[in-house]
């Protein structure tokens, strides 16, 4: 019994240890001259292309549902003046950054981890190494930088879409005034609300998604089953880390 728990705990610490080592290696490569810019831009383009549309769809509907709930209740309480601000708070602080990260983890994170996993089980990672090419600077670091840079941009875009979708519902369904919606948001939100989501959560979440996906992919055990399992594991693990981190960032910043 104790033995089982003991080996389980040791195993977890082992994985955490390798994960930190992996992260530090990737970070080191970010500043090395072996890293080629062309690989980074190629990945940035991929991240954008893969997640632009689903991010837009997600935030459109989340913005609309949130705004419609808030508007209905707040109109009944006669608090129309703060609706734009409340929707803005929710979107810019939490829903935009977090849901964008969730979408990107599911789309891009899964793609990266199954790509790396496939390379691992078909000996492509070994082939890279045998050609004196380092997978950290050739594969992992470019994906890391791409996600760290792209996620903030996607979040800005997502926040904007979500906020505007909220306004659409407010104006079209509840006959609200669009100017009042903006004024309310402008009045209640300050720079921190917008910037923290973009500039703190964005890069941080991007880093988590990239590091988790590449780490999990690179440790895939052989077999085509392993590839699918790695994709699932990468998504589940990054979502858990994202939700926990999101709580602490919000708690500390706002």
């Amino acid at each position: 019994m104790f033995e089982v728990i003991g080996s389980y705990v040791i195993n977890i610490f082992n994985i955490l240890g390798s994960y930190s080592l992996f992260c530090s290696r990737v970070l080191k490569r970010v500043f090395s001259k072996e890293l080629k810019m062309s690989r980074v831009t190629e990945q940035m383009y991929k991240v954008g292309a893969q997640s632009f549309v689903i991010t837009a769809i997600t935030l459109t509907f989340v913005g609309m549902v949130f705004s419609s709930q808030v508007t209905k209740e707040f109109l009944r309480m006669g608090a129309a003046k703060i609706i734009g601000g409340i929707v803005g708070f929710a979107i810019w602080r939490e829903l935009g950054p977090l849901l964008t990260a969730v979408v990107v983890a599911a789309r891009v994170g899964a793609a990266i981890s199954s790509e790396i996993a496939a390379m691992k089980v078909t000996e492509q990672l070994d082939a890279l190494k045998s050609m004196a090419l380092d997978p950290y600077s050739y594969l992992y670091a470019p994906r890391f930088i791409a996600l760290v840079c792209m996620l903030p941009l996607l979040i800005i875009f997502a926040d904007f879409i979500g906020f505007m979708a909220g306004m659409l519902i407010y104006v079209v369904v509840y006959n609200g005034n669009s100017v009042a919606y903006f004024v309310s948001a402008a009045h209640m939100l300050d720079a921190t609300d917008i910037l923290a989501g973009v500039l703190i959560k964005g890069p941080l979440f991007g880093a988590v998604i990239a590091l988790t996906a590449t780490f999990v992919g690179s440790r895939t055990k052989s077999g085509s089953q392993g590839i699918g399992m790695s994709a699932t594991l990468a998504v589940v693990a990054s979502l858990i880390i994202l939700f926990i981190l999101n709580f602490f960032v919000s708690f500390l910043v706002f």
Binding site: E115, A118, M119, T122, E123, Q124, D126, A127, L128, K129, S130, M131, A132, L133
Partner: peptide
């Protein structure tokens, strides 16, 4: 390693690169 050439049992070609890019990769990088 640069003085060695290795033909892997599973070939281990890079899926995302063309045949020419696979073959020329070492030259391009090194």
């Amino acid at each position: 390693r640069l003085g060695f050439g290795m033909v892997f049992q599973s070939s281990a070609l890079f899926d995302s690169l063309t045949v020419a890019e696979n073959v020329g990769l070492v030259l391009k990088e090194h």
